[in-house]
Amino acid sequence: MRDQRILDLVQMASEAEELEQSARLTFAHTPAETGMSWRRVGVLGALAAVLTMAFMVWPRAPIPGPPQVVMNRPKPVAPKAPEQVNTGPMLLAVFHQPDARCDCVVWEEGSFANRDVREIGRSELIEAAWKARCADSSNLMLVVALDGPRELLPTDEDSARVLAACLSIQSEECGAAASCYENASEFISPSVTMVAATLATTGK
């Protein structure tokens, strides 16, 4: 029975960790800033509306319009937008050496196909990264799942390395504390949803 209680605690602790990670999904302004911003938008919008109304009702001499020309043109065909292939959240795992060096990076698409990134739990993240691990001697694994407009996500090896480097910058001060990595959101567009998890490992 004692064993089951401990396992229950582990499961609950894992859920508490997920709850904390969910807080990192929101890259929000502070309320004061947001309020000010919307007030500005509101004032500008109201001003624009007043000017438009004034222009419409202002008395003015009638201006003869240009002679109307009717042309038979072929109906324009709207260009077809290139089809966006969304393969679901992208997985990025960064393996750190004991001296905080970035050992290697795993970048994968399709690990979480058709999944909402916000539903991906810590253990899923870590398991996916562990399966694809590229280093056995790292002492910290940072795993991130990202989803959002494709143009804002790493599209090739180079941009994946860049993002990994940006996240790695945090590692010296963050260590294994996953919540600390929220500072890395500065490198990521607010339109991108991100979940992160860390796993401290002992290496081999």
């Binding site: 750190h96 970035c102 050992d103 290697c104 795993v106 970048w107 143009e151 480097a165 990521i188 567009s189």
Partner: peptide, 27 residues
């Protein structure tokens, strides 16, 4: 896909590529 490399290498060219790869990067 596995990308190997040291962190120091990555950091050296991180900033310019961030700006181009993430075109709508804001302040």
């Amino acid at each position: 896909m596995v990308l190997a490399g040291s962190r120091s290498e990555l950091v050296l060219w991180a900033e310019p590529v961030v700006r181009s790869a993430m075109s709508s990067q804001r302040e």
